[in-house]
Design a protein around this nucleic acid. Structure first.
Lengths: 338, 338
DNA sequence: GTGAAAGCGCTAACAG
DNA sequence: CTGTTAGCGCTTTCAC
């Protein structure tokens, strides 16, 4: 009923104990090919008694194909990427794949190093965040022959399959929404956009659409570093220090926006009358602030799930835009009185 | 300068191109054993020209030892576990190991299934969260012979090495702190403690110490489900509905406490005079609320780092208590006027 | 310092 | 339906 040796158990030991050939054991254990009920029982019994644990390393070598899926995220301090991992993990788990993860820290070279390491394990697929990767990364990935899925954005010249939404359009939607609420003197608080390309694309869309509406960005504060509640809070303080006349602020994401929200609370700035606040991501916490945060809901878990799904199943490479949704909270005015 | 075949490149191809034997290539590439400068150059040049990517699956089989480290976390919706992954990832990455993750959803049987899958990859080590695991999990792990590190708690009868802090003592410290602040009518708001054993241990310590101080828990509200800002907010509302006389509330963790904090803000309940709020974890966001959250800071990233470190280096199994720290915020009174 | 050869544990034809 | 036979690509003796 228990294992005899500490992991020295092999398929041939099971075969011997069951009185069948190795390949029969292999077939039974993988439930593939054909075998009699009798063999099946004998093998299963022997395997259980011996505490046999199949060696997938050997299996992968022999069948030249692992069930590992590599996932690279830029950060784990933002719950957004944990959501991505969670979604992907669910699907991989159900399909008996293993997720291997790495954190690139928003650094293309670090990402490249991670990819290089992952490829040595001959993963079934590689999931990446965003569409921006070093040339070397693209080259390695392409010649590796394994499936590649880029997540969280959509755009041109992808490596393989893409699952996400348009960050640029999200920025456009944010601008459209704010101007529709009647805001006219709008500022922006963001973090390090050189590293976070997707936040940069949102700002770009935001900026462009403001102009298209005959408005322009009144001022902006870039805090540098990564997005955080702290940076959002300090960023808004700095921005309002220069421009107390702003009537709304767009933040690079919800973490930043929530920081701004807290700044207003502590300074007695009335939201949304005195200042409108708009974020991006639709984090749970934003829905449970004293007043609900206006933001854009992104389908992160869905993206993770679908990315994993497309990564492990056969099929054409494609670009899937899962879209996003405006969340009308209480941190922006309702009426668009002209 | 580029690869010829899509991943069909093997060590023998490199050997042939470099005009040396396979074992020399192997030695050079792993920088182990001895070889001449000349061989080194030839091998490196050939490998680069052919775009050779070593196959670690084969390598692991041959050397019977993978560089995979399995990590099981109960959840990814709480940033706490992302911190753990981040800390572990940093160390594994630097040491050229790969982290393989799985989410158990606070379910011992799901954890068991994950462990079983992981073991098939013959990981160098397995990192688990908490000390509570199914008997079958313990058995598999023990007979696997691979290193096991349990994180986030300390206690008796571990499987292998332990890196964490005492959750029970954290509960005691919370009780001690609150009574020291002068609070006397104390309530508790928690989530599903049957699943989250560590939160249960904290409550146990909290409860015991209150009694030791001649106090007792005035009332408690268990929201069920997982911890979240939403549950914390609703939980506190329910609790205060029954017991408006409470002067302080201990929450199962910071997510819950922040929910409670928001409830107070929206209801105009003055913190900390009218109601004291105390959490657990020391999340970043708690430090940047309009007023700083009083809580207990836990060294999560450190735990992840050290756990990974101990997992991959040789050495005795041990129990490391990294402790925790009371964070005196503004959501609890300062004076302990009797 | 270096190459030849023997596996690592399993899967994948292939005969039976 | 089942056993035998080759490898999968690499590491590891072990002579040279």
């Amino acid at each position: 009923m228990t294992n005899e040796k500490i992991s020295g158990m092999t398929i041939s030991a099971v075969a011997a104990a069951a009185g069948v050939g190795e390949s029969t054991v292999s077939r039974v254990l993988r439930n593939e090919g054909s075998f009699s009920h009798r063999s099946r029982d004998k093998v299963l019994k022997a395997a259980a008694e011996l505490g046999y644990v199949p060696n997938r390393i050997a299996g992968s070598l022999a069948s030249s194909g692992s069930r590992l899926v590599a996932i690279v995220v830029p950060s784990l301090t933002n719950i957004v990427f944990a959501d991505l991992l969670r979604g992907a993990g669910e699907v991989l788990d159900a399909a008996k794949y293993q997720g291997v993860f790495g954190v690139s820290d928003y650094d293309p070279l670090k990402e490249q190093a991670l990819i290089a390491s992952f490829l040595e394990y001959r993963p079934a697929a590689v999931l990446l965040s965003g569409l921006e990767h070093s040339d070397e990364s693209r080259k390695m990935l392409k010649s590796s022959g394994c499936r590649v899925v880029e997540m969280l954005d959509v755009g041109s010249d992808p490596i393989g399959t893409v699952v996400g939404f348009s960050n640029r359009e999200a920025g456009v939607a944010a601008a459209d929404y704010l101007q529709g609420c009647g805001y006219r003197t709008i500022g922006y608080v963001g973090h390090d956009l050189a590293a976070d390309k997707r936040a940069g694309k949102r700002l770009e869309g935001f900026y462009a659409h403001l102009q298209a509406c005959g408005l322009q960005l009144a001022d902006r504060e870039m805090t540098g570093g990564r997005s955080s509640v702290e940076n959002g809070r300090n960023g808004l303080a700095a921005l309002l220090g220069r421009r107390p006349d702003l009537d709304a602020v767009y933040f690079s994401n919800d973490d930043m926006a929530i920081g701004g929200y807290f700044h207003c609370l502590s300074q007695g700035i009335r939201i949304p009358e005195q200042l409108g606040i708009f974020g991006h991501n639709g984090l749970d916490i934003g829905a449970h602030l004293p007043t609900r945060l206006s933001t854009i809901q992104t389908p992160r878990v869905e993206i993770g799930r679908l990315a994993a799904q497309l990564a492990i199943e056969a099929g054409e490479e494609k670009i899937v835009d899962l879209g996003f949704q405006i969340v009308t909270g209480q941190t922006t005015k309702r009426s668009s009185s002209p």
